[in-house]
Amino acid sequence: MAAAVKTEGLTKTYKLLTRREPVSAVSNLSIEVSEGEIFGFLGPNGAGKTTTIKMLLGLVYPSSGNAWILGKPAGDIEIKRQISYLPETPYFYDYMTGAEILRFYGRLFGLSDSVLNTKIVELLKIVGLYTDRNKTLNQYSKGMLQRIGIAQTLLNDPKLLILDEPTTGLDPLAHSDIRNLILKLKEQGKTVFLSSHQLSDVEMVCDRVAIMNRGKLLKIGHLSDMLSAGHVEIVASEIDDVTVNKLREYVHSVDKTEGYCVISQSEGECVNKTIDLIRQCKGQVVSIVPQRHTLEDLFVEMIREVNK
C-alpha cells in the first residue's frame, strides 16, 4: 500500500532581494504518512508547515527533494480528485451563499448538479449551516466560514484531507464537533494530515505527529511513544524512615508528607524492587501510575531547547 503522503529531502528556499543568502522555509524534510492515519503536523509560527502543505498541493514548487501523494507526484491533477484541502483562515468569494460556494467547488470536481443537490444539503447539515445556507458568506462569522471550509473538503469524498488549522475561530461546541468529525473520518478509513496549534486536539485525535521548527523536522513518531515520560509514580503509606533512605539510594525522588510517600522512578528501574521494599516494612501500596507528558509539555520543551 502506497503511503498517503511521502516526502524525501523536501526543501524550499526563497531568494530575497534584501539578503544575499537564500532563506530556507523547509529544509530536507523526509516524512511518511500511512493511509488511514491521522497525522499531526506541528510547529510554531514560521516552522514551515504551510509551505510544506503548499508543496504537497503543488501550489509551491520545491527547491529540491520530492513529494508524493497517494503514490503520485505532488500536484498531480488526478490525485487532486482524491484529496481535499482546508487552508488556514479560509477565504472564499464572499458574495456567494454557503450553498453556492459548495456548488462552485463541487463543479470543479466535475460533480453533476443532481449529485450536488443532495450532497450540498447533506454537508451543510453535517457542519450545522443548513439554516444559513442562503446567507452570503460576508454575513458569516469566522466560525461559520471555517465550517463551510470543512464542508468543501468533504465534497469529493476524499481519501486524504489536508487540514491547516481546522478549529481556528470555532466556539467550544463547534470545536468538539470538528474533532469528532475528524475521528469519524478516521473510522471511514480516510487519512488526515492535520496541521494545528491546538495541541490538545492533536493529542486527542492523532496517531503520529511530526514537530517542525525553523523549517527542520525535530521529531516524528507515535504519540504514545513521544508522550510516555518513562516515569512511574508509586504512592505508599506507612513507610518507615529506614525504607525511605533505602529507596533514595536508587529511585529518582522520594517525598514523604502526611503519612504518604510519593516515589517517582523511571520505568527502567525495578518497580518490583520498590514494591518488595514497601511490603517488607509492612507498608501499603496506594497507587502505581505511569506518568505521561502532555503534548504541550513536550512541544514547549522541545522548541525551547532548540531555540536556545
Binding site: L57, G58, I83, Y85, P87, P90, Y91, Y93, L108, Q152
Partner: peptide, 14 residues
Amino acid sequence: ERRTIYTILSKPVR
C-alpha cells in the same frame, strides 16, 4: 491576495 486561489488550485484545476 485574498488567497481564494489556494482552495481552487487544490482542486483538480490546472
